[in-house]
Write a protein that binds this DNA or RNA. Structure first.
Length: 198
DNA sequence: TGGCAGATTTTA
DNA sequence: AAAATCTGCCAA
């Protein structure tokens, strides 16, 4: 499991460090896991696309919570997005998890998604939330330590959940936003076929 | 209080 | 290209 010291860094640095880390959900329907391959940083200063930019509301309150906790929100009235809170309490910064590479529980992911193609299971923020069985019940939950939803570098029988030396980080602009669209705050593992788009 | 845009995905 | 449909913001 990750520890609190993982978050002793800027949100941008954390967005980069999260690439390669495993996200695991041990839920009632079964266990699913994926390797993070794409992230976006959302900052408290100078970033109008950040939900925290216009202060705290009922919806974005979890974003102002403990680093290492989850911020889950409803988007477009239909889907959910999953974020990792990154800044100290009260600041309001987070990293959106945009894509993961399916690692285990893949049949369950297929079932939840109603999709067969591996590349289509978790290649987008709304998709991976469905495939992983993440919901509003995880909002504000800690993602470190012994939780049902957590981040880790160690998974039995699998290589270490870190970015390999051969994997470069590609940095570019974020997706689906208008204001702040010029900021290069999106990161993904170059060449990964599991990212939301190139 | 009404209209609209939004960190999306799917289907026509 | 357009629909599905919730939340927050800003104008009346």
């Amino acid at each position: 499991m990750l520890t609190t010291s993982f978050f002793n860094a800027s949100t941008v640095q954390i967005a980069r460090k999260l690439l390669g880390v495993y996200l695991v959900h041990d839920g009632p329907e079964g266990s699913t896991a994926g390797r993070i391959v794409e992230t976006e940083a959302y900052l408290s200063k100078g970033d109008p696309a950040c939900h925290a930019a216009r202060g705290q509301t009922r919806r974005n309150a979890p974003m102002f919570g403990q680093p290492g906790s989850a911020y889950v929100y409803l988007i477009y009235g239909m889907y959910h997005c999953f974020n990792v809170v990154t800044a100290k309490p009260g600041r309001g910064e987070a990293v959106l998890i945009r894509a993961i590479e399916p690692v285990s529980g893949i049949d369950l992911m297929r079932e939840r998604r109603g999709q067969d193609k591996l590349m289509n299971l978790c290649s987008g923020p709304g998709k991976l939330v469905i495939a992983m069985g993440i919901g509003m019940e995880h909002n504000s939950q800690m993602l470190l330590g012994a939780q049902n939803l957590f981040l880790t570098r160690k998974l039995d029988g699998l290589p270490s959940g870190i970015r390999k030396r051969s994997e470069a980080i590609y940095q570019t602009t974020r997706i689906g936003i208008k204001e702040g669209s010029e900021l290069q705050l999106r990161f993904y593992i170059e060449g990964s076929p599991f990212v939301s788009r190139n």
